[in-house]
Design a protein around this nucleic acid. Structure first.
Lengths: 219, 219
DNA sequence: TAGATTGTTAATCGATTAACAATC
DNA sequence: TAGATTGTTAATCGATTAACAATC
């Protein structure tokens, strides 16, 4: 009975993976938690604690083998499991995400794109022909994708998600500015670019106010 | 000397704002922390604690006035300060983000888009004509934007960011799959869609493994 | 007034950091 | 072997939750 790994640790895993990939690309073979901590701006303690949630990947007196550790983290993230995904919504966002994302190296294979707009059905995105949304049920039954990427407008999101859950989809990446209520057994990752913008606005405001205060300006 | 508001609280602010906007749109006038907590899936305690970092916006026995609270959070986030932004990179991602994002209601006004590819310079995105990247220095000197959105390839990011910092930009929204090292006084918000995909992959893997284990499958 | 619900303090819980024995 | 660095336990810190007096 292993203890559940905390969300904070999981959130950091992709970042470790990214840094290790960079190290691999630079031809660096071994790294200590201390040196990695310096590069990433976190504590060495945290790195060792995080990794030891999953096992002892290092060696005393040596550190970590970069390529080995990278592979282990890929395994932990499940990047080698070949999960399949469909995309609903072939608008700007869908096109951009489908085209720019290296799905294969992030754990997924994009196998179908669907839209209800006849104007885009039949067009091709990144080598995949866009199908009519009305055909998605049959497609899912035949191909059993694990995940659906929703690049559709806010108002359509809830309805589409429920339909897809009914068809057997259990994980979603949601780009619309609404939240999919997390149901039992359904996995959701929301991408809210607006939220990032607002956080940035907060940080700028906060910095400006602090600067004003230091100059003695009344707020 | 106020205590600094923690990152966890700041990260939740856009979500409060979103929910309050929805409540406003549904014509709901007042809400208690208890009812809001039910809708958002957090504790009422947390909501009250979070809000009280910034002031007492409620009334005992009544709860919170939705519209008032929404306005207050908008002020806290700085959404009404009219910060200006430029975008560098008029590729797919730039076009999509510029077109789909309601900048004005998220605290920013997009006032310029730049690219070094002559093929896109001169084209129009969301009412803004794309200018040559070589002209950005002059533009920044004249218009003093606060923030730059980087929708450019990984390899160009570091160099461009440094140039822009030299020109006076102090905040970045970075879409490329690399990290801008946070320098003193520079604010960075990284958008790494690949990381979201990997987190999703982890969660699916984890769920699959747990299900296997419950069925008694050896891993 | 009585009931409801806040603002705020105190208690708990979890995550991060520090320390160090184990060991390569 | 001596030096380096891990894995892991203990200490600290911060964030979340619970409780309740204040008060609308």
């Amino acid at each position: 009975m292993e203890k559940k790994v905390s969300g904070s640790v999981i959130n950091r895993l992709p970042r470790y993976y990214r840094h290790l990939t960079d190290l691999c690309d630079s031809g660096i073979e071994r790294i200590s938690s201390k040196e990695l901590s310096r590069r990433m701006g976190v504590t060495a303690s945290q790195i060792r604690q995080d990794l030891n949630c999953f096992g002892g990947f290092g060696q005393q007196g040596y550190g970590y083998n970069v390529e080995f550790l990278r592979t282990e983290i890929a395994n932990i993230l499940g990047l080698n499991r070949g999960y399949t995904a469909v995309m609903v919504g072939a608008g700007h966002m869908g096109r951009t995400f489908a085209t720019n994302t290296k799905f294969e190296s992030r754990g997924f294979k994009l196998i179908g794109i669907f839209d209800s707009d006849p104007a885009v059905v039949g067009t091709e995105i990144h080598g995949i022909k866009v199908s009519a949304y009305s055909e998605i049920g049959e497609f899912i039954k035949a191909n059993k994708p694990k995940m659906a990427i929703l690049t559709i407008p806010k108002d359509a999101t809830k309805k589409v998600a429920e339909e897809l859950i009914g068809m057997g989809i259990t994980a979603f990446m949601n780009f619309s500015y609404t939240e999919l209520a997390e149901k039992e057994g359904i996995i959701v990752e929301n991408v809210h670019l607006s939220d990032s913008l607002m956080r940035l606005s907060y940080k700028i405001s906060d910095k400006d106010d602090t600067a004003d205060k230091e100059r003695g300006v009344e707020l």
